[in-house]
């Protein structure tokens, strides 16, 4: 697991990917390109994000979970139903 960090205003740097660097040259197709990024049978895009777990704050990268099954769940907001 990644190193714990002190509460503050820092946020993990966005991981640059090949897709991201190539999209600015085609701004018109950006939306379409985004919606086709995820395909079953293809690698899940890696990311790093700040996390809260069992009283601690730390950064999590998806790549840390290689070798394990992962269920990644997005939801609209805290204090809503999930």
């Amino acid at each position: 697991m990644a190193e714990e960090f002190k509460p503050g205003c820092q946020r993990p740097a966005v991981k640059k990917t090949v897709e991201q660097t190539s999209t600015p040259s085609q701004p018109i197709q950006e939306k379409g390109a985004e919606s086709t990024l995820i395909k079953v049978g293809k690698p899940a895009p890696d990311f790093t994000a700040a996390a809260f777990h069992k009283g601690k704050f730390f950064n999590v990268s998806l790549s840390e979970y290689l070798g394990k099954w992962v269920l990644l769940c997005f939801y609209p907001g805290d204090f809503t139903f999930v």
Binding site: G41, P43, A44, D46, L66, L72, C73, Y75, P76, G77
Partner: peptide, 18 residues
Amino acid sequence: VETRGRFLIDPDGIVQGF
């Protein structure tokens, strides 16, 4: 906001379903 997306990723990092 994020919509209710759910992704199942296998040990090789491959998206198997969403």
